[in-house]
């Protein structure tokens, strides 16, 4: 009798706590690459940080993170999770110094690029050219555009079919590796391809 009473009480408390947050909450999920990040919730009733997978907090920040079940995640987010588009893919192609010729390793990546493109519905692709800091900025802006166009044309010749394509030139302003001016850096002589 006593035991039942306690059970009933704790069930009531559970219901009360669920109603208390009105089921408006955020839950951390593992990243597609297997790592875990974090989210910070700032609400009317406080601030909470979640850094554990499956931990949840109400959006008003009133309670510390608490693990929730896979069943609940499925019930509340199954449809949203199932609708998730394929995670975008990114390729980096590298150039021989000073020109628009791909290194052999990078030329060999092109079939993988086309494959990633073909897997995605309404695929939109950005081809973004970059240089190192050898030469002046204007020259490099032109060179990085030339590199991006070269790669875009190469992909078209190999049968690229896209919903939208953008070709961009970042010159020497967006290096992968920060260097002083006039520094030859093979890792900065690149074209990024973002496939979404």
């Amino acid at each position: 009798m006593m035991k039942t009473g306690i059970k009933r009480l704790s069930a009531l408390a559970l219901v009360a706590s669920l109603v208390g947050c009105a089921n408006s909450y955020v839950v951390l999920l593992p990243n597609p690459d297997g790592t875990t990040g974090k989210v910070i919730v700032t609400g009317k009733k406080g601030q909470q940080v979640i850094d554990q997978v499956s931990a949840a907090v109400p959006l008003d920040g009133s309670k510390a993170p608490e693990a929730i079940s896979g069943d609940k995640i499925q019930r509340d987010f199954g449809a949203a999770i199932a609708a998730r588009p394929l995670i975008p893919e990114r390729f980096l192609l590298y150039f021989k110094s000073g020109g628009a010729d791909l290194t052999a390793e990078s030329a060999a990546l092109l079939p993988k690029v086309l494959k990633a493109v073909s897997l995605r519905p309404a695929v939109d692709v950005s081809v973004i050219g970059h240089t190192d800091t050898v030469g002046d900025k204007e020259y490099n802006r032109g060179l990085s555009l030339e590199r991006a166009q070269f790669v875009a044309n190469l992909l078209r010749k190999q049968g690229l079919k896209v919903h939208a394509l953008t070709v961009e030139s970042h010159g020497e302003r967006n290096p992968l590796v920060k260097t002083p001016d006039n520094t030859a850096e093979p890792r900065n002589r690149r074209v990024e391809i973002s496939i979404r």
Binding site: A22, N23, S24, Y25, V26, L29, V39, I40, T42, L59
Partner: peptide
């Protein structure tokens, strides 16, 4: 409506009822 989520490189799910 009740709080703001700051994102630090991650996947998460959020529900507003």
């Amino acid at each position: 409506p009740t709080g703001t989520i700051g994102v630090r490189g991650t996947q998460f799910a959020v529900r507003v009822e």
